[in-house]
Design a protein around this nucleic acid. Structure first.
Lengths: 159, 159
DNA sequence: GAAAAAGGTTAGCATCAGGCTAAGCATTTG
DNA sequence: CAAATGCTTAGCCTGATGCTAACCTTTTTC
């Protein structure tokens, strides 16, 4: 596995990608169980979850207008959905200082944690990582850095 | 936790775990966008999705009785949910050869892919991996193997 | 072999989420 | 000041889910 012709390298690349995805797939069952668990304990509808996800990622606070536009529903409908999110304690409405007609909608800490839990269905949890041999941790870090770097490259190129 | 000799190693371990989780977290935005996208295009209710996930993970085919028990609803209600899943083309009912009262319910390939897409909201996609330098791929593989190994160890111990 | 139990579906009913339009109230904008 | 904008409420409809009761078919039990 040292010095090899470029074709050789391509071969190894494909093999490695394949194996990484195999491993990733093998972890899926655990991931799925976790996701199911989270869905089971979550008392939100799909629509509420969608809106909540937008709230979580909108730092400045979303507006009813913006939400109803981006979901393609009337403001009246969105108002109802937001009512229910607020009732559930996962969102709050606050006044907009610059335009008093507008009410900014934010996810509460509870709302953020609900959404986060859905994605923490991944196996790279601290308790697992802490048990790994140092060498493996270093390797994992290198791999993550590379993936992360590649993603930002793609995003810059893509948009 | 803090000891003299291994302290150096423990320090690096904590730093590495921290950084890996930072990287993992930094990927979250992309992951979230993908998950939202999948939720948007998915035409299932939460309940249907929950049941479908169980179907996907139940290789031998689930029974109406079993499902209604584990979800805590009446068989009549579960029957309706299954009707809708079948209508959506994500599940099928087949006869049980050993007990003709029973109808085994399976996820269709479409159903399996719907569920899988929800979890493929992870950044380790082939197209991204294929762009990585070989050295990083090797490192990633080593890290994945280690995590995978650790998970099965924990599972054995846990059960 | 007949009675009881079990798996499943259907019918009928209730509730709730979410969609709409219309109307109404503030607040900006023109 | 009039028009436009943001939002909520009221009234209405549909679809998903939940229930019980009734019924059919197949196993089990006695």
């Amino acid at each position: 596995m040292r010095q090899e012709a470029p074709e050789q390298g391509e071969h190894e690349r494909e093999r490695l990608v394949h194996e990484i995805q195999e491993l990733n797939g093998a972890m899926e069952e655990a991931v799925m169980a976790s996701l199911l668990q989270n869905l089971l304990s979550m008392d939100l509808t799909i629509q509420q979850l969608r809106v909540l996800m937008v709230l979580v990622t909108t730092k400045e606070g979303a507006t009813g207008r913006g939400l109803s536009d981006s979901f393609g529903v009337s403001m009246a409908s969105m108002s109802g959905v937001l009512d229910r999110l607020v009732d559930h304690g996962v969102a709050v409405r606050t006044p907009d200082p610059r335009d008093q007609r507008v009410r900014r909608v934010h996810a509460t800490p509870l709302g953020a944690s609900v959404v986060r839990r859905l994605m923490v269905a991944r196996p790279f949890r601290g308790d697992i990582l802490m048990r790994l041999p140092l060498a493996d941790l270093r390797a994992l870090e290198q791999g993550f850095r590379a993936v992360s770097r590649q993603i930002s490259l793609l995003e810059q190129a893509g948009d």
